[in-house]
Write a protein that binds this DNA or RNA. Structure first.
Length: 264
DNA sequence: TTGATTGTTACCGG
DNA sequence: TCCGGTAACAATCA
């Protein structure tokens, strides 16, 4: 479900709703009981995001949450209703509460563990401390496909399967292109585009690639691909060539063979 | 009921 | 060391 835009939006929202408050933390299903006990009654200072990782600075502890493919927060008004499903963590604030279901990570980290996490993550285009030169160095010294590297969180943190397809389409780059064959100018365009798209995603809490004028008003909130250009599309909006699907990095990649020609 | 999924890690072999 | 492939795990919905 979430790419970097969702995570940064969550960090901002949770900071807004809960920072400065002493929260009641519970683990209704008992799977995070000990950690929740430690957090309960402590003040949440701030929630930060790095790539797809959330770091809750909570009292003197840092709570690390990664939603994985299925993780979900549900927001409630305080007091919250009965928990739905396997709630791993429930936090109750003055006005709002949240439930967390299905994360791949929900754990308290020491300072050392937090910096270890930081060290294994690449630069995050949404963070002020991001350094595109470091990303360029990694890309230009790797022979693996750019479609693979865009999903590699150790290289660039926050891009997921939808953004990688859309970014490569907008730049006209075939996903199998070896990343060390890219020109620096192509990388610069890729970085700038990624920053722009992710920022739009944070603002609207949704991945938006296509210009609204080209697509018209959204017909239904259910149609998730309406603002996309290639991801899960059957034909290219620019040239009508059938969109191809292959697998790179164990995930499906969608691309237009005409607009994104293979290189030598 | 089945299959797919906006993710990640560990492990193995070349 | 680098790189690709595979399995495992999570929860929800069409």
């Amino acid at each position: 479900m979430p790419e970097g835009h969702t995570i940064h939006r969550l960090a901002a929202d949770h900071t807004k709703w809960f920072a400065g408050q002493k929260l009641t933390a519970l683990s209704p299903q008992g799977r995070f009981a000990e950690g929740a006990k430690k957090l309960s009654g402590r003040t949440l200072r701030q929630v930060r995001a790095h790539g797809k990782h959330l770091l809750y600075e909570w009292g003197r502890s840092t709570l690390h949450i990664h939603l994985g493919l299925y993780g979900k927060f549900r927001k409630h008004k305080s007091p919250p209703p009965e928990p739905r499903g396997a709630v791993r963590l429930r936090a109750i604030g003055d006005d709002f509460a949240f439930d967390l279901n299905g994360p791949t990570a929900c754990e308290l980290l020491t300072k050392a563990e937090v910096s270890k996490l930081r060290d294994r993550l690449g630069d995050d285009p949404l963070r002020n401390d991001a350094d595109p030169d470091r990303v360029w160095k990694k890309l230009s010294s790797s022979r693996s496909a750019i479609g693979q590297q865009l999903l590699n969180q150790a290289v660039i943190a926050g891009v997921g399967n939808v953004y990688r397809a859309e970014i490569l389409f907008l730049l006209g780059i075939h996903p199998a292109t070896k990343s060390n064959t890219l020109e620096r100018s192509e990388f610069d365009a890729m970085w700038d585009l990624t920053v722009d798209l992710l920022k739009i995603g944070v603002k609207h809490n949704r991945i938006i690639i296509a210009d609204p004028q080209d697509v018209g008003k959204p017909r239904s909130r259910m149609n998730r691909t309406e603002r996309l250009l290639v991801y899960k599309k059957s034909s290219c909006g620019a040239c009508e060539t059938p969109i191809e699907v292959s697998t790179i990095g164990a995930r499906k990649i969608y691309f237009c063979p005409a607009c994104q020609p293979e290189r030598d």
